[in-house]
């Protein structure tokens, strides 16, 4: 017996119809594309690689605008227990051990490394690198083993030690937190996906410091790419070979 194309297609249609078992129950769902869905990857612009540049010469020792903005934006609470408080970004004071250079104050946050050791060690792949280089924690998968905290050389991660109630003025665009998972800076992924800079960068600009620049280093025209070409910058612990994407100028 031979089958022409039409009868094969007809058979396929019949099978597809049969797969609709009951109203609302289908084994195979027809794809639906909403109007605001992202376009096919092939049509989208070349991949971004987000990075940050911090000009420490513009960073004032007593200014905590970035830290405060981060806490506000990401609903990060302070427990009043310094050993167990969560810090996504913190101000660190540097003092030259040789006492030749003046002290420096700068913010330290997750470096969103290209070779992130935290992603390497995570048993459930809850820590992962997004295609645009942002290192994130999928808290749905985190089991709270803390191996990533051990592996991170920048102390960028915190475990949520306390159970908290959401404060009254939460930013609903960002989830609050359950105890027992690890969390860290997300580069304000909800903002950068909307084309806005991270909250700390915006706050730094708002405080008229402008010490923090955020942008796409795969775009040679971006401000950060230009600055990285001309300014003398360094990353934290370059000897570890993790290729961090938070660059510091003026240390």
């Amino acid at each position: 017996m031979t089958m022409d194309r039409r009868s094969v297609l007809g058979l396929g249609g019949a099978i597809a119809a049969g797969l609709a078992l009951a109203p609302g129950m289908h084994l195979v769902a027809a794809p639906q594309t909403p109007s605001d869905a992202p376009k096919d990857p092939a049509e989208s612009p070349p991949a971004k690689r987000w990075a940050m540049l911090i000009d420490t010469t513009k960073c004032a020792a007593n200014c905590t605008a970035c830290v405060d903005a981060c806490r506000q934006e990401n609903n990060v609470p302070l427990f009043g227990d310094p050993e167990r408080d969560i810090y996504w970004i913190r101000k660190v004071e540097l003092r030259d051990k040789g006492l030749r250079k003046p002290p420096v104050s700068l913010p330290v946050l997750c470096n969103h490394c290209e070779n992130p050791p935290c992603v390497h060690v995570c048993p459930t792949a809850a820590s992962f690198s997004r295609k645009d280089g942002v290192v994130l924690i999928d808290k749905h998968r985190c089991i709270g083993c803390r191996y990533c905290i051990i592996a991170c050389p920048y102390k960028a991660r915190s475990l949520v030690y306390y159970k908290t109630k959401p404060p009254a003025n939460t930013n609903k665009a960002v989830p609050i937190r359950a105890a027992g998972v690890v969390e860290k800076c997300t580069f304000c992924v909800h903002r950068i996906d909307n084309g806005e800079p991270p909250a700390c960068v915006a706050a730094c600009k708002g405080a008229e410091k402008g010490a923090m620049i955020f942008g796409d280093i795969n775009d040679p025209q971006s401000e950060i790419s230009q600055r990285l070409l001309t300014a003398k910058t360094q990353t934290m612990r370059p000897d570890l070979g993790l290729k961090p994407q938070v660059h510091y100028q003026g240390i």
């Binding site: 390497h120 060690v121 459930t124 792949a125 083993c145 359950a178």
Partner: peptide, 25 residues
């Protein structure tokens, strides 16, 4: 001692084969 012992079976579902923990499992 996991932070989320309710999720302790997740390593069986999502395995990261580069993790020393997964090897140890």
């Amino acid at each position: 001692d996991l932070g989320r012992p309710d999720n302790m079976l997740l390593p069986m579902v999502y395995m990261n084969f580069r993790s020393m923990f997964t090897w140890n499992v």
